[in-house]
């Protein structure tokens, strides 16, 4: 968070600056733009008809449906978790606060494959709850439930890590005033806290959503990969690819690539909006 206005130097007429910027832009084009273009070109490599046939195939549509369903289940739970964690951490002092912040970030450091394997040892036949689940005749592994659970693990830090620094900076004076005037906790949260954190919340939720919809490693360990049943969109792309249907895999991939680009657009819009709000707040403070 910058506290002073930046003075960026225009590059025109400065050979060293032009060289640095040129090199950076060229590398960015090769590293970041080329893969996106490759997806678009390869997706239509076998013609528009083949593209449409792949994207509207029942298996693809089912995979899209399952991916959207996973996001609908997982994102709200992680929003609730993020809000709870941020409220407890930013509005109260208690021993172990810093440790708790570190623990919340743990899933970011764990390989998705490790996460998938770990879940197998809780809910699988060989797992901690394996016998109990078998006795109740409940199958978790290799069903959509396992997909929901690992997705929850992999994306649990996204909302919390956006809200915690935001709510720490904002302080609790507004909320304390509302409580002292007799507002209930829920009312205080909805009318005082939420308006201040809504952009951070949306930002975290959007990143969480993109990761849920795109998660591959963890889901591929626990899903069972059954076509038309437990195949999410990323798994479906792998299936098509290994069927030597490369154009089909790229066609299915365009749906997720569009989602990624939309995520970036919304993310950038929110960042500019919050930066503008911060500038206004600073100007008000100076006046």
């Amino acid at each position: 968070m910058s506290t002073r206005p930046l003075h960026r130097v225009p590059v025109t007429g400065r050979p060293a600056a032009m060289l640095l910027v040129g090199t950076g832009m060229l590398l960015a084009a090769l590293v970041l733009v080329a893969p996106i273009l490759a997806i678009a070109v390869n997706a239509f490599g076998a013609g528009v008809g083949h593209y449409l046939a792949t994207v509207t195939h029942p298996d693809t549509l089912h995979a899209i449906g399952l991916t959207v369903l996973t996001a609908i289940v997982v994102v709200p739970v992680n929003i609730a978790f993020g809000v709870c964690a941020a409220w407890a951490i930013c509005r109260f002092r208690f021993p172990g606060r810093k440790l708790l912040i570190a623990v919340i970030e743990v899933p970011f450091s764990v390989s998705p494959v490790v996460a998938g394997v770990a879940y197998l040892f809780v809910y699988g036949d060989q797992g901690l709850f394996g016998d109990a689940l078998a006795a109740m005749d409940v199958q978790v592994m290799f069903t959509v439930w396992a997909i929901f659970l690992v997705s929850l693990f992999v994306t649990s830090p996204y909302v919390a890590r956006e809200l915690i620094p935001l709510m720490q900076v904002q302080g609790s004076e507004g909320e304390e005033a509302a409580i002292s005037l007799g507002a209930s906790g829920l009312r205080t949260f909805l009318h005082v806290t939420l308006p201040n954190i809504k952009w951070g919340l949306l930002y975290g939720a959007i990143l969480c959503n993109a990761r849920v919809m795109g998660e591959f490693g963890a889901v591929s360990v626990v899903s069972g990969n059954i076509r038309g049943q437990t195949n999410t969109l990323p798994l479906h792309i792998e299936l098509l690819y290994h069927d030597y249907n490369t154009a089909g895999a790229f066609a299915a991939a365009t749906t997720l690539a569009v989602l990624a680009v939309l995520t970036l657009v919304v993310k950038t819009t929110i960042e500019r909006r919050t930066a503008a709000l911060r500038r206004e707040a600073m100007e008000d403070g100076a006046a």
Binding site: V9, V21, A28, V33, P35, L207, F216, L256, L264
Partner: peptide, 26 residues
């Protein structure tokens, strides 16, 4: 530096986090 395309580049840096890994792989 200020240069044409700076804001686009800034946004593009996050692409690898937004793009699903399987899509990046193929």
């Amino acid at each position: 530096y200020e240069f044409p395309g700076r804001r686009a580049l800034d946004a593009l840096v996050d692409l690898p986090f937004a793009l699903p890994t399987a899509v990046a792989g193929i």
